[in-house]
Write a protein that binds this DNA or RNA. Structure first.
Lengths: 341, 341
DNA sequence: TCGCCTTGCGCACTCGATTGTGCATCACTT
DNA sequence: AAGTGATGCACAATCGAGTGCGCAAGGCGA
């Protein structure tokens, strides 16, 4: 393999020292009074040879890599994939690179990933934590290492986060179904180790309470945020003596699974049961069945997470002036859409 | 920030040298005849302090980071998101970490990403190239740097790759529509800078030829692999004096866009027009309209790409014995499914 | 007691870049 | 001619870990 070009290659070729090359290439020619002519020779030679600084060496020396780690719980979920995409674009603008990882809702993998990213010298982390444990994050917090929680939070962990108003949105979705005349509302919930799942359940319960409707555990399936969990939830509902007349799915994958199961169920009442769900995807509009969805602003979520994080990174090393507010909490709103109704 | 634990911390605490610590922690105690008791003290202390080696330092010194870069063209496409997920799992098994990036089908971003990943000392790359230029990849090739192409290939670039049999699958999809009685088949194609898009177009043409049907440019829309391109394609079809009686979409996003546009089109004939498409997603089964899809084996694709790459990485530095075949080309098959038909 | 071999471990250099300090050289003043 | 101040750049240490080489201490036979 043709060796990568190093600073010393350029320095040797031009008969100057690595020091000078380094200073010119990092734009510090002026403060160190490097002659304009020298600087130009160096820049030209670097260009000619296609010099790319080693981020390894630079990161090692400066302890600053202009890289952030984004650890989502499930990259195969379009919600997180979209966030990842938004985060990358947003970070690029700010001169940061993003390393994306996916824990697969597995706490062990999450821990390993955090350690790995740290050892790669990332300057900060954005994490959608699998829960329920968050000691590894609390440690970051104690160390003053910049990180931002995404989509999910922990009550006792004081830090920056970006989430949507899950309980309110869930309640609104359920109320929309109730307004439509539903009286027996089922809930297919997600991974209860996450605040997101818990708050969406709370929203569901609040909606029921608001209408003085009973909470029936049999109408509730608590699994995880997977397609398969949606199938299982649907399966449970299919067995009920009296079927529900409306369903609330905690996320898009659960909705997929639920619909999948109903596709092979008796048409009545399952095929046209109105459903509400989080996470709009392009298909929903053309699904041909009553659907109410809360669209999460993925782009904004990703962008704001990056913004919060880079701000914290750049606002300096520990000991520097505190920000006005010690922590930034961003509650973004969802947008409700109705299809086939 | 509490300093990360370094080797020298452990060495100092135990009164041994860094050398010894390094040897023990990298499992080379025996060949260097480190006393078992010393080794155990070191291991215990490392454990107690939660030592995590700096990948920066290690990578710098050894030029081997056990990390691979995965650069997809669009992470927000579930097809690539699923591949990313598969690749991560597969790499983890082999002791490699994955850094995921998304070029957004932008050649400039792709080039920048490749440079960035290289400068981070990745041991190899998996790339779904945006095209049409691939000089940056040819350079990797010349340098003997390990990489694998994903989903898309370049005729003149001799290297490892993993793709599906695009032309055959596209032809089969079209023929399935033709078998169903379609006679005016439209094609909504993708980014023609990619082999994938070109081969799918070829498959479409081959299917037409096979039935002695004319190729009508008005029935063909060549955009990119985006939802919006699908909308535009549908728009074009809506304007035709004689509508098509079947449509082939080159990927899932195009299909989304197409369906989206048709959702607000006259029911006849647009709402029930049979459509064929690549890339199955969970929704399709419950779409309630005739659909034929080719499911790509994303998990296998991701896994095999990682396998090829790690093999090339580990099969040693340049000069080591060549593999039997200079390059590995993996043609995976798609699986055809029909919904609502 | 003198070599010699084994056991156990450390010195010092290296990877590629950044950075505090220092040191020529030259112009110009007094 | 000596002193002063800019100008332009290099030396050498540093980040954290890996590694070739070598050296001290102890055991053993002669």
């Amino acid at each position: 393999m043709a060796r990568r070009v190093r600073m010393s290659d350029i320095a040797d070729a031009l008969g100057v020292s690595r020091t000078t090359v380094s200073r010119v290439l990092s734009g510090k020619a002026a403060p160190f009074r490097i002659a304009t002519e020298t600087a130009e020779r160096i820049l030209k030679e670097a260009e000619r040879r296609g010099y790319q600084p080693s981020q390894l060496a630079r990161g090692l020396r400066t302890a600053f890599s202009r890289t952030i780690g984004l650890l989502v719980s499930d990259i195969s979920n379009p919600f997180f994939a979209n966030i990842a995409w938004a985060a990358e674009q947003s970070a690029e603008q700010k001169g940061f690179a993003v390393i994306v990882g996916s824990s697969g809702e597995d706490l062990k993998r999450e821990r390993a990933y955090v350690a790995n990213l740290m050892s790669r010298g990332v300057d900060g982390l954005i994490v959608a934590p699998a829960g329920p444990d968050y000691e590894h994050l609390a440690e970051l917090q104690r160390d003053g290492f910049p990180f931002v929680l995404l989509d999910r939070v922990f009550e006792d962990l004081e830090c920056d986060w970006v989430v949507v108003e899950n309980q309110g949105a869930a309640r609104a979705l359920c109320e929309a179904l109730l307004d439509r005349g539903c009286e027996r509302l089922a809930f297919l919930g997600g991974r209860m180790e996450t605040s997101t799942a818990r708050l969406r359940l709370e929203g569901y319960r609040a909606a029921l309470r608001g209408r003085r409707l009973p909470f029936d555990p049999e109408m509730v399936h608590l699994g995880d945020f997977s397609v398969d969990s949606g199938r299982k939830g649907a399966e449970q509902l299919l067995k009920l003596p009296v079927p529900p007349d409306g369903i609330f799915c905690a996320n898009n994958k659960i909705l997929f699974g639920c619909l999948d199961r109903f596709a092979s169920a008796p048409a009545e009442p399952w095929r046209m049961l109105p459903i509400a769900s989080f996470d709009e995807t392009p298909f929903m509009k053309v699904l041909g069945r009553p659907l109410i969805v809360a669209a999460q602003p993925e782009h904004a979520i990703g962008a704001r997470a990056v913004e919060l994080l880079t701000h914290r990174i750049l606002s300096g090393p520990p000991g520097s002036p505190r920000m006005n507010k010690p922590f930034n909490h961003l509650l973004l709103n969802t947008e409700q859409k109705r299809f086939g109704i």
